[in-house]
Nucleic acid binder design. Sequence first.
DNA 1: TTGTACGCGTTATCAC
DNA 2: GTGATAACGCGTACAA
Lengths: 365, 365
Amino acid sequence: MLACATALKALAGPGGCKRLHNGAVRSSSVTLRDVARAAQVHPGTVSRALNAETRGLVNQETAERVMRAAEDLGYRPNPIARGLKTNRSFTVGVLVPDLTNPLFPPIVRGIEDRLGAAGYTSLIANTDNDPDRERQDFEAMRARQVDGFITATARADREFVDETRGLGEPIVLVNRRLEDESLPAVTVDDQEGARLAVEHVVALGHRRVAHLGGPQAMSTGHQRHLGFRAAMAAAGLEVEDRAIRFAPAFVEDAGARVCRELLDAYPDATAIVAANDLLALGCYDVLAERGLRCPQDISVVGFNDMPFADRFDPPLTTVRIPHREIGSAAADLLLERLGEAADDAPQIRLSPTFASRGSTAPPRR
Amino acid sequence: MLACATALKALAGPGGCKRLHNGAVRSSSVTLRDVARAAQVHPGTVSRALNAETRGLVNQETAERVMRAAEDLGYRPNPIARGLKTNRSFTVGVLVPDLTNPLFPPIVRGIEDRLGAAGYTSLIANTDNDPDRERQDFEAMRARQVDGFITATARADREFVDETRGLGEPIVLVNRRLEDESLPAVTVDDQEGARLAVEHVVALGHRRVAHLGGPQAMSTGHQRHLGFRAAMAAAGLEVEDRAIRFAPAFVEDAGARVCRELLDAYPDATAIVAANDLLALGCYDVLAERGLRCPQDISVVGFNDMPFADRFDPPLTTVRIPHREIGSAAADLLLERLGEAADDAPQIRLSPTFASRGSTAPPRR
DNA sequence: TTGTACGCGTTATCAC
DNA sequence: GTGATAACGCGTACAA
């Protein structure tokens, strides 16, 4: 008996063996026509019978015969061919800055799980926040006929909007929003989150609270900054200019660098509200290098509740966001738009909660 | 002037506007034929001219004319159509148990970056270690005509091998290997890693060393166990049965549960070599709940050096593996096989290193 | 209700 | 060196 694998290799093409030695059926390349032959009908009929929406057009028992044949042969429609005809690939592009940033995996899973349940596959690309690379990924995905996009990348608004206009594919923003709210977006309520953070340290007795902000070109950085100011004002606390510094990126070393500036300019701060957990970790490093203890000497609050934040030393007090739900909500938004082109741009804001842990304590000074 | 976006929506099909008001060229759907028309040649010629491998068959200046026309029109070859003809999708399927497990993002990035550079796109699926879901993802990817697979999932060998046989697409294992080494695999040298861990604690003076092992059905769990035994023997240390327990999964709560059993059975252990960082974190929890201090009362060693392991309390001493390189090596292996079907099955073992941090110290008892 | 025929965008195999 | 033509697998008007 000729081994199936060998036969396949010899043929080096489609139409290989359909039955393995164990009797299991394997669709190496069984097409619509094969099913048609088996069911004694025309390929067109098979197409109709197998497609749920057109099944009504075909005789009940013919349909059943076809479906049984398809089942027997292990027929799997070829999405490539289907897409060529229908201009739909049932694929969506997901752009994130960096999958190794712990913020994104849960969001991506939220997206993928929801999209997968709806029969869509997601293509993931990491842009490293490089506009060129982002553009490139974008084009590559369009070339692959993705039906839509979900993006968590952060490009300057104008530029992004310009390139997005006239785009055939719907696009949903996740964990970021546009200033003019012209694109559907799912984020956490960043201002609310910042308020939770400020209220927490204020309740502990802090008065001299600093803000280690994120990039102001990103909506998260900007909104959290606004939220910080608003909450401080609401608490009747003055915010000096030197109490606020912005990191150019949401990464640890930027956080450390800017934290040094912040402490130099505002040495009597007793608490730092960071715009992001990684920035907060940068603070940890600076405090350690300056012999300051956290939380005894200075309290630190993060934002995002990244995985394992409760394992840090000290366990990070932080604003908790529903990562997974953010992803699935974005997927839902896109799914709606994939069906029928909508021209509204819902702005979904999910509520953050708060995780009080070991990096905050009442001030001693 | 009619807005382009509106026109597109009205047409609701291909062949929309090709030029935006700003003069930028956008390929809403410019095809080979459009280029052919523009360059005054036959579509076939365009195909040849644009494909690097067949370009030699076409006149130098004709080729240039075609390429310029393609450039001008912003032509992007449609991979769908190409795939239909060539039976290649330039897509590979990547299966991981769970992207939110911090071990995988760096590996996936290693894979994607390498694959992307070679013009391939990767489809990622999370199986949650559910065999049914894995099978399903596998089939879905085959249906999408992926050219090959890279999988980090852990299924029982036999089953997996059976379903893999006669598969047209090449497959590469990452971070796991088959007992019989019948499939190409890239892993770290797990036994070597376990040896590093054991030697470290032995050098610190530990004699009563316990092993919190991983699932023995997984090669990582199994190999690390073997490595532990071998290293202990090499150090002239006896390993009692009660000094070893296996967790059913590489997750924190399994680690905690089994760590309790381990400590109950072997209360005078002074060091625990865990098969994985998450299991080590489970140990942290149990030590804390029993009032034992780490490392003063008991030392703990992890495996993987997951991101932020140095931030834990205490900073986790662990075996360090080159996550990213593991991914890119796997991608390389697959890339080789995508070109020409090879029937060898290289077993690449990357060397682990060691990160000595705060969770280990000399024994006090 | 079902068969026919064509087209989606590309590549491959022929001629010329 | 280039053009014509036929596929690839599927969906879908249109005809029967």
